[in-house]
Design a protein around this nucleic acid. Structure first.
Length: 679
DNA sequence: CTGTACTAGACCACT
DNA sequence: TCTAGTACAG
C-alpha cells in the first residue's frame, strides 16, 4: 500500500480511493504532464491529492503554484486541499491567473515605471476612461459601439489581432487611452497578464527568481487559457518544465474571452516528452445523463477523442417540460424542487438551476421568493458593482492612488459639492497643460495666486481636497480602515445624498445605506482576518476588484438552491439539475451565432457542461413563449434537444392546449421519436 | 449649478 | 422594465 506522510502527519491512502489513471496523475510529479479529464472524472480530487502528494514528497508549499481561470474554481480548489489536509496552507498559492498577475505587479511594477499603488480598472472604469479620453481628443464615439471598441483594444493589447481597416481609425484613441492609464497609475484586466509578461521577458534575473520560487506549476481548466496566459506559463515553467496542465477540450467555453484550444497542441509541441494521462471514467452522473451528454457532444467535430463511461447503471430519464412562459417555468421548477424535497428528502443545496444568461434569472428568483424557497445566485452583478459600493470603493481608491482620475471623476461631485462642469474643464485644462493628474491639478489650482477659479469654486474644491488629504493617511495606515471609512461616510453625509436621490422611494435609500454598512463590515472582517497576510488598503482594493461576479455569500450555502449561469457552474456538480430556457436563441445564444456560425460548437459544449453537472436527475425546460425586453415572443426549442437520444427523454405533458404551430410540430416530432424508440 | 423629464438602447458568458 | 445620457428650466 502506498501512502504518503504529509507534513501534518496525516496519512493519505489514495490507492484505495483512486483508480489507476488517477493514481498515475497523482504520482507523476516531475516533468511536464498533460491530464485530459472528462466531465465528472474526479479531476478536482486528483489535483488535491496530487498537491498533497507533492507536499508529502517534501516539496515546500511555497514552491507550488496552482492556477485556475475563475475565482470560483480557485476557491473550490483551495477549499478542497484544506479539507483533505485538515489545515490551511498559507504559503501555497492557489489563484486565478489575474490574481497571480497582481501579485507579481505588486512586487515588480516599478520596473515598468508605475508605482505600486496602482489602481485596477474593471470594465466599468474602462468605459468611463474611454468616454473621457474620447471627449478630450474630440473623438466622436457616436459611430462606434463602446464595448466593441474596448474589445478591439483588448485584442490589440493582447496581440490577438493587429491593426486593420476596422480598427485603424481608433489608433489615436487607443494610444490616448494607454497614455491615460499610465498617467493615472492604473492598469486594466488585460494588463494584469500583459505587464507581468513584459516584466518576465525584459528582466531575466527577475524571471529567474520567480522560476526558482515556483518550481512546480499546476494549471486547471487549461482549455480556457488564452495565448497570453500560455505565454506567461511558458515564461515561468518553460525551464524547469515541472508543469502539469489539466483540462478537457469538450468543456472549453471561454473562447470569446481569448481561450484558445491550440494551447493544447502547443503544449504537446513545447513538451514533446510529456506524460499524458486521460481520465475517462465518470463518477458523477447516472448512465442516462451521461448518455444524453455524450449524444450531444458527439455532434461536435474537432474533439480529442474521449469516451466517458460510468460504472453506475440506468437512472431516471431526462425530463423535458414545455411551460407556457417563463413564469410557468419558474413555477414548474419550484414545484419539482418542493416535491422532491418532500418525497425524497432532497436538500435544497443539492439543486442547481442553470441558465444561459443572467437575464433569465429574474423570473426564477421571483418564483423562489413566491414559493419561499431559499436560494443563492452567483454571477450577474456582484455586490462590489453596485453603485453605492462603487462610490465607496472610489473614495478608497482615490486615497490609495490620488492620480486615479477615473475614481476622482466618479466621486468628485458625489454627493454634490457644487463642483460643476466649468470648474472641471478648467482643471482638466490645467492637468493637460502640465501633464499631471486631476487631483494634482486641484492642488495646483488652489495654490496658484492667479487661479482662474471663482472664489466659490475654490471653496468647494478646497473642501474636497481637504477631505481626501485628511482621510488618505488614515486609510493608508492600514489600521482601523472600517472605522475610518465609516467616519468618512458620515462626514460626506452620504445618507442625505441617498435620500435626495431617491425621494420617491425611501426603501431604496435605506437598502443602499444597508449595503454600505455591509461593505464596512466586509472591510472590518478583512482587517480582522488572521489569514490575510497583507492587510493593507491596496491589497483589499485589488482583491475586490478581481471579485467581479462572485458574490459575498461564502457564509451559508447550506439549505439553498443554487441559481447560476452555466459558465459559473463549470467545475461544480449537483444531485439535481434544472436547465432553464433550453430554447433556440438562448442555447445556442443568438448573439453568439451572429458573431460566427462556428460558435455553434462552443454553444453545444456549453449545453454539454450544463448536462454533465447533474448527478442523478436532469430537468430541461423550454418555454412556448417568453417575454424578451418589451414583447412576448414565441419560442422554438433548442436544436440541441434533438441530439439527445430520444429514448432517454421523457416529456412532462402539460395540460395547456398547444397554440403555436412550431410548438405543435415539435411536439409531434418528439412523440414520433418516442414511438420509434419503442419506449 | 442642480433637478427633472424625456428618450434610446439594453440582455451573453468572466477576469 | 430599467438605466444612462441629454436637454432644458430655474
Amino acid at each position: 500500500m502506498r501512502a504518503c506522510d504529509v507534513v501534518t502527519g496525516v496519512k493519505l491512502n489514495y490507492t484505495e480511493e483512486l483508480n489507476p489513471e488517477q493514481c498515475r496523475a497523482v504520482e507523476t510529479i516531475d516533468g511536464p504532464v498533460l491530464i485530459i479529464a472528462g466531465a465528472g472524472s474526479g479531476k478536482t480530487r486528483v489535483i488535491t491529492y496530487r498537491i498533497a502528494n507533492m507536499l508529502g514528497h517534501g516539496i515546500p508549499q511555497s514552491s507550488i503554484l496552482a492556477l485556475t481561470f475563475t475565482n470560483k474554481a480557485a476557491h473550490e480548489m483551495a477549499g478542497r486541499v484544506r479539507e483533505l489536509l485538515g489545515r490551511k496552507l498559507p504559503n501555497l498559492i492557489v489563484s486565478t491567473f489575474h490574481a497571480f498577475g497582481v501579485r507579481i505587479l505588486r512586487e515588480q511594477i516599478h520596473r515598468l515605471g508605475y508605482r505600486d499603488s496602482f489602481s485596477i480598472y474593471d470594465t466599468h472604469d474602462q468605459l468611463s476612461l474611454l468616454k473621457q479620453t474620447a471627449r478630450e481628443i474630440r473623438f466622436s464615439l457616436d459611430s462606434v459601439d463602446l464595448y466593441t471598441t474596448l474589445a478591439a483594444f483588448s485584442r490589440i493589447k493582447t496581440g490577438t489581432a493587429d491593426w486593420d481597416d476596422q480598427t485603424l481609425p481608433l489608433h489615436t484613441l487607443y494610444h490616448q487611452y494607454q497614455t491615460h492609464l499610465r498617467l493615472y497609475n492604473a492598469v486594466d484586466f488585460d494588463d494584469l497578464i500583459q505587464l507581468p509578461i513584459a516584466i518576465l521577458s525584459q528582466f531575466g534575473e527577475v524571471a529567474d527568481g520567480y522560476r526558482r520560487r515556483f518550481s512546480y506549476i499546476l494549471v486547471d481548466e487549461f482549455q480556457d487559457t488564452s495565448r497570453q496566459q500560455y505565454r506567461f506559463l511558458q515564461l515561468l515553467g518553460g525551464r524547469h518544465r515541472n508543469v502539469c496542465v489539466v483540462g478537457d477540450d469538450d468543456q472549453s467555453i471561454y473562447s470569446w474571452r481569448g481561450a484558445d484550444y491550440r494551447n493544447l497542441l502547443q503544449f504537446e509541441r513545447d513538451f514533446p516528452d510529456l506524460q499524458e494521462i486521460t481520465l475517462e471514467r465518470n463518477y458523477r452522473s447516472s448512465n442516462t445523463i451521461l448518455a444524453a451528454a455524450n449524444g450531444v457532444i458527439s455532434h461536435n467535430t474537432n474533439r480529442k477523442s474521449k469516451n466517458l463511461w460510468s460504472g453506475s447503471d440506468g437512472g431516471s430519464p431526462v425530463e423535458l417540460y414545455h411551460p407556457e412562459d417563463e413564469r410557468a417555468e419558474a413555477t414548474f421548477i419550484c414545484d419539482r424542487i418542493k416535491g422532491m424535497a418532500l418525497k425524497e428528502g432532497l436538500k435544497y443545496h443539492d439543486v442547481g438551476v442553470l441558465i444561459r444568461a443572467n437575464s433569465l434569472a429574474r423570473a426564477l428568483e421571483e418564483g423562489f421568493l413566491a414559493e419561499n424557497i431559499p436560494y443563492r445566485i452567483s454571477g450577474g452583478e456582484s455586490f462590489f458593482q453596485r453603485k453605492e459600493i462603487k462610490d465607496m470603493i472610489s473614495y478608497m481608491r482615490l486615497c490609495a492612488n490620488p492620480d486615479d482620475d477615473v475614481s476622482l471623476l466618479r466621486i468628485m461631485n458625489t454627493p454634490r459639492r457644487g463642483i460643476g462642469l466649468r470648474t472641471l474643464e478648467q482643471l482638466q485644462e490645467l492637468a493637460r497643460a502640465r501633464g499631471i493628474s486631476l487631483f494634482s491639478a486641484m492642488h495646483a489650482a488652489l495654490a496658484a495666486e492667479d487661479s482662474p477659479l471663482s472664489s466659490r469654486a475654490r471653496d468647494d474644491l478646497g473642501g474636497f481636497v481637504t477631505l481626501i488629504d485628511t482621510y488618505r493617511p488614515k486609510l493608508l495606515s492600514g489600521r482601523r480602515m472600517a472605522e475610518t471609512l465609516s467616519a468618512m461616510v458620515t462626514e460626506i453625509d452620504y445618507w442625505s445624498y441617498l435620500v435626495s436621490e431617491h425621494q420617491r422611494n425611501e426603501k431604496v435609500a435605506k437598502w443602499k445605506l444597508r449595503n454600505i454598512e455591509l461593505f464596512i463590515d466586509i472591510v472590518r472582517s478583512y482587517e480582522r482576518d488572521p489569514d490575510t497576510l497583507d492587510s493593507g488598503l491596496f491589497h483589499f482594493l485589488n482583491r475586490i476588484t478581481l471579485q467581479q461576479r462572485d458574490n459575498i455569500d461564502q457564509d451559508d450555502e447550506q439549505g439553498k438552491v443554487n441559481l447560476m449561469t452555466i459558465h459559473a457552474a463549470k467545475g461544480l456538480e449537483h444531485e439535481v439539475v434544472f436547465v432553464a430556457g433550453v430554447e433556440d436563441g438562448i442555447i445556442p445564444h443568438a448573439r453568439a451565432l451572429e458573431e460566427h456560425e462556428r460558435n455553434i460548437e462552443e454553444e453545444r459544449r456549453l449545453f454539454y457542461v450544463a448536462i454533465t453537472r447533474a448527478r442523478r436527475r436532469l430537468f430541461l425546460t423550454c418555454c412556448r413563449q417568453r417575454k424578451v425586453m418589451r414583447e412576448v415572443i414565441n419560442c422554438v426549442p433548442s436544436p440541441f434537444l434533438e441530439e439527445i437520444p430520444a429514448g432517454l427523454i421523457q416529456i412532462s405533458e402539460v395540460d395547456i392546449p398547444v397554440e403555436h404551430d412550431e410548438a405543435a410540430d415539435y411536439f409531434a416530432m418528439i412523440k414520433a421519436r418516442f414511438a420509434r424508440s419503442g419506449v
